[in-house]
Amino acid sequence: MIHRVKTPLVVSMAVAVTAVSAFCSAAEPQKLVWPKRLSPGDTLMLIAPAGPVERDQVMRFKDHIEQRGYKVKLRDDMFDVEGYLAGSDQRRAEEFNEAFADPEVDGVLAVRGGYGCMRMMPLVDWEGVRKSPKLLLGFSDITALHAGMNKAGVVSFHGPGPASGLGSKEGPTDFTAKYVVRAVEASPAGPYVVEVPESVSKVESFGKGKATGRLVGGNLSLISALEGTPYAIDTKDAILMIEDVNEAPYRIDRMVQQLKLAGKLDHLKGVVLGKFTEDFVREDKLTDDKRFDTTGVLRQYFENLGVPVLVNYPIGHFPQNCTVPLGGEVEVDADAKTLRILAP
């Protein structure tokens, strides 16, 4: 257990924001560095950069990791609660920076999304991330940190945490477990095709042929919120991946339209549409017209885009959650309905 170090924040928010702006002013590199992948015996640090976390889930997650042969670090203030956040912005940023600065830590696992990552991003030492690239795993609100990692020139891993099976009593599904291990562990190395049986998800496609490019994106709400900031994703010649949860179709429409108006759909090589739950809770359905349900809205934007598109892919807020490398090269095949990870 790492004990909290009560150090004053010596850099003001204004200075931090200036440093971030300078860091992010350069274009995102086309070829990103793959961090060292993991092997049993390595040390992993658990972090809570967004919403409050449940102690029982985290400790089960820790036990599962240790049973696989890893050593685990976590701070004793991980379970702090400040409103809808896992402690203050300063606490969460300090935890993130500590994980990347600690020479004993080989990988960093975010234990929950929710909300909060964008609030702490001005306080993150992105130069430290660039100089000491490490594997980061998480999804949902962690999309914001993945965008920062990619901006720092480092491939980052969109995948599950304790709240999505890895910390449950039942454990993750076989599919989720297989592909988180395949993505983040060092052996076996090299490219691989993700095999998706229909029992996991019935993958469909728009368009034809294959496309290769950097995989970018993550949670649609976060991607759209990052537009206009130094962390906005670079989609030129990329494969865009998006997913979301509990969003009404018109909200999905508005967020994708924002990306379109920003030119983020203009120069894509391909698209992976992950899971979009239709059990949204914030508004009632505004229409029964199938063209404007979730599937219909996505079809409007992506069916005639002229690039290969995978649809209903098992990524996101779904028990079957495939881990993928944001910033890493992938191949989308619309004819075979497959995703190939071009891992080194």
Rank of each mutant, 00 (worst) to 15 (best):
H3I: 12
P8E: 12
V10G: 02
V15A: 15
V15T: 10
T18M: 12
A19R: 00
F23K: 02
Q30H: 03
K31N: 06
V33R: 14
P35G: 08
P35L: 10
K36S: 14
P40V: 04
M45N: 08
L46M: 07
I47R: 05
I47M: 03
G51W: 13
M59P: 00
K62L: 08
Y70T: 00
K73P: 10
D76T: 11
R91G: 02
R92K: 03
A93K: 15
F100N: 05
F100I: 00
A101S: 08
E104I: 01
G113K: 13
Y115L: 06
M120Y: 03
V124Y: 04
D125M: 03
R130W: 05
S132Y: 01
K134S: 04
L135M: 07
G138E: 04
G138Q: 01
F139M: 09
A147I: 14
G148L: 11
H158S: 00
G165P: 09
E170N: 00
E170M: 08
G171R: 02
D174H: 00
F175Q: 11
F175L: 09
K178H: 07
V180H: 03
V180K: 05
S187C: 05
P191N: 08
V193A: 01
V194H: 07
E195M: 05
E198V: 07
S201T: 06
V203C: 02
E204D: 13
G217M: 10
N219E: 13
L220Q: 04
S221D: 06
E227Y: 02
P230F: 00
T235F: 11
A238H: 10
L240Q: 02
M241C: 05
M241R: 02
I242T: 11
E243Q: 10
A248L: 12
M255A: 10
V256G: 05
V256C: 04
Q257H: 13
Q258D: 03
L261Y: 09
L268C: 04
L273N: 01
G274S: 05
D279C: 09
V281I: 09
R282V: 00
E283Q: 06
D289T: 07
R291G: 13
F292M: 12
R299S: 09
Y301A: 05
Y301R: 01
F302N: 02
E303W: 01
N304R: 09
G306R: 01
V307I: 14
L310W: 03
N312L: 06
P314A: 14
P314F: 14
F318N: 12
V330K: 04
K337Y: 06
